[in-house]
Design a protein around this nucleic acid. Structure first.
Lengths: 132, 132
DNA sequence: TTAGGTCCAGTACGAATGTACGTGAGATGA
DNA sequence: TCATCTCACGTACATTCGTACTGGACCTAA
């Protein structure tokens, strides 16, 4: 698989917008991002260009407007990013992060219910694997 | 609350070693880190210096050897780092990361058990809060 | 058809990051 | 005590990152 350079923090935010919106113009992406927090149009433009240079996006001209599309799937990027973080901050051990998330960040009752369902599902999978 | 500049990825690895070992010399830290992966002595040295410049560590000379100690608590740095990641990659929503961890990274049965205990604990806390 | 707008591409640039070399002070062995 | 050796320190430097200005292509209204 393509050994892409990792995304920087700023690039990540733009990538997220791109994933959410699907193919979009710089202007559209900038508009969407600005709703959350102030960011210069040209800055978004640069990030998009870098995203393409790194292989995370493609673009094509539609008339005189450039339309960017995501090239890497969000799932992949998330996996790589989280793997890297877990590696560097916890030496590759997942549980400390899990503990942190559960204990230190607020979890709503709804989320709790989903969490429970998730680990129950995992449990079943384990059982199946063990007994098969 | 010192508004420290965030740690870079490389600095994070050194910080982790420092937390694990307690006060230590550059050489000791380098030795410990080398067990995991090759890294230049001078590079570790530079990271330590920057850690100190950013306020994450202190050092003092012991004879002609410099001994570094962590200044920021691991918990704090982890919180800040994870917050930032969740913000940029998931727009501040914790659950997607949680889901990712549970579904995409292997969880051992033991960890699963602990997880269950953790969320049960949370449940109780919620109940208490609600009924009090 | 010209004086303004609008909008994009490219260029720019200081700061941060990753990585390592060279120098000089103390330790060592002949 | 002189030639070595060992270390740690500071310095250095190419790359990446964050951020933004600028020039020119196209559009529009007088």
């Amino acid at each position: 698989m393509g050994e892409r350079p990792a995304l920087s923090k700023g690039e990540m935010e733009v990538a997220r917008a791109l994933w959410q919106m699907g193919p979009a113009t710089v202007r559209a992406i900038h508009a969407a991002m600005t709703e959350q927090k102030a960011i210069d149009f040209a800055t978004v433009q640069t990030y998009l260009r870098r995203l393409e240079a790194k292989g995370y996006a493609t673009s094509k001209l539609d008339g005189r407007t450039r339309v960017y599309s995501a090239r890497a799937r969000a799932k992949t990027v998330i996996r790589e990013t989280v793997n890297d973080l877990v590696e560097r901050l916890f030496g590759g051990d997942t549980m400390p992060l899990m503990r942190h998330l559960i204990e230190e960040r607020g979890i709503t009752p709804d989320d709790l219910a989903e969490l429970r369902k998730l680990i129950d599902g995992l449990d079943d999978a384990n059982d199946t694997e063990v007994t098969s």
